[in-house]
Design a protein around this nucleic acid. Structure first.
Ligand SMILES: NC(=O)c1ccc[n+]([C@@H]2O[C@H](COP(=O)([O-])OP(=O)(O)OC[C@H]3O[C@@H](n4cnc5c(N)ncnc54)[C@H](O)[C@@H]3O)[C@@H](O)[C@H]2O)c1
Ligand SMILES: NC(=O)c1ccc[n+]([C@@H]2O[C@H](COP(=O)([O-])OP(=O)(O)OC[C@H]3O[C@@H](n4cnc5c(N)ncnc54)[C@H](O)[C@@H]3O)[C@@H](O)[C@H]2O)c1
Lengths: 214, 214
DNA sequence: TAAGAATTGTGAATCGTTTCACAACATTCT
DNA sequence: AGAATGTTGTGAAACGATTCACAATTCTTA
């Protein structure tokens, strides 16, 4: 069954990311094959879950043996679309934005921050790790003339919707939003939120109710 | 039905955080009451979902009228455990850790970063926004003698498990982990992961498969 | 006070995800 | 070669979350 036949759940996609990291580690440890049982044990999942997730995309294993580590890693990279380079823009070079620009891991993973925007005159034109900060006022045309497909928004929450509107207008279809607000975008634009306050609230809930939520 | 009777799902807890923010906004806009219909419309949820989520914790609304904004906000704060102050420690004052220490919103929300740990001699003893950086080697005893209940881990991934082991040994039951690895902790410790790489991979998947996953 | 409109709270129905269980197949051992 | 062991891939069952649908209740208006 082809991918487009099925709607893949958010959980499955997240677990693919987990499998991918586990396989990177297994490759380092020189494993040639890995069983769903062992992979599940390492990542605290169930073997059936692992097999079911992978089966949505094909038959990658060998009965009696397990999955070939390097090959499966490649297949998952293909499924996730990380077997290529993605050009990324960052909006807002403040506390968190600066940390992101300096962060080497994204680059290693194939997510390249190629453009940076800000509205602070003192920052515009300055050099951040080899990237010149652009004026936010030019964002629509600059993104349109670029190869950028993913935008990270790291501006104060009061500004995030305005920035998102521009980003959408520039034709971008994928946004990673770090501001703690719910962006309103058209249906064909995917937004993922990274909301640390929500995670802290989750911890607070768990401690208060001494419940481990699922 | 008491909270302890039911296992509340992760999604419900996340939505409570969403309702809480929406109610803050509604309060600013001087709404006295809000219906599940309008709240759902604003947050792109369904009215039934809103009512069901709230009904797990009690009957907060009035038939025919809706929910009293300020009162409901208070109830949700109580449920999430954010009607009080939580003392938090941060481990790793690097790029991302520094951003967190400077971030005022956590404080406003009642999450107070009270202690900071690092293993870099040049950082230990230095002053970060009024907090003296402690030596990681003393973390177990220092946490034990403190009022800290939540720890944020912002060290390189190769170090995160070691730090987590110490944190667990110090009796901490809630961890926010920013390193892109799966921490192994006992069952009674809650870990939440903030994994930006995984979110980027999610965007990459969505763009590659032009699918909006749920 | 009665009728009409709005909206909650919640069982029941529906939908989606996870787990179970086993046939099919590969490998190893004797 | 045949038996024993290990493991996948996948329908079916079990479970869990969301949506439906409606009785119960409140408010408004006349
Ligand atoms: N700092 C943290 O630890 C942290 C943690 C979680 C979430 N966040 C969120 O991340 C976002 C950024 O936080 P921060 O601490 O880096 O803030 P910051 O104030 O340090 O940085 C914001 C940057 O955005 C720029 N900016 C403002 N308006 C802009 C606009 N319209 N267009 C382009 N650039 C604009 C500012 O000039 C500044 O450089 C906020 O929404 C915040 O809530 C931050
Ligand atoms: N920088 C980013 O934008 C970013 C984004 C996503 C995730 N992360 C993750 O956050 C973590 C921190 O990233 P960073 O960019 O801030 O790294 P960094 O190297 O700038 O900072 C790490 C800090 O941890 C300290 N440290 C190292 N080992 C330690 C130990 N054993 N005990 C205590 N302190 C120790 C270092 O001295 C340093 O101050 C990493 O796991 C990274 O993958 C970072």
């Amino acid at each position: 069954m082809a991918i487009s036949d099925r709607r893949i759940s958010e959980s499955t996609i997240h677990r693919l990311s987990i499998y991918y990291r586990a396989l990177q580690q297994l490759e380092k440890e020189n494993y040639e094959t890995i069983s769903s049982k062992e992979l599940a044990r390492r990542e605290k999942l169930t073997p059936a879950q692992v097999r079911k997730d992978l089966s949505f995309f094909g038959s990658f294993g060998t009965r009696g043996l397990g999955y070939p580590v390097v090959e499966l890693k490649g297949k998952i990279a293909g499924i996730l679309g990380i077997d290529r380079v993605w050009d990324v823009a960052l909006v807002g070079v403040g506390n968190i934005g600066s940390a992101l620009v300096s962060y080497k891991e994204f680059q290693k993973q194939g997510f390249l921050i190629k453009m940076v925007f800000d509205n602070d005159q003192r920052k515009i034109g300055s050099n951040h790790k080899g990237i010149i900060v652009s004026d936010i006022r030019n964002i629509v045309s600059e993104l349109r003339n670029s190869s950028i497909e993913i935008v990270i928004i790291a501006v104060p929450s009061s500004m995030a919707q305005l920035v998102a509107d521009d980003v959408v207008q520039a034709g971008i279809k994928a946004i990673l939003n770090l501001a703690p607000i719910n962006l309103k975008v058209p249906d064909d634009v995917v937004v993922r939120n990274e909301n640390m306050a929500m995670e802290l609230e989750y911890l607070s809930f768990s401690l208060s109710n001494h419940q481990r939520p699922k």
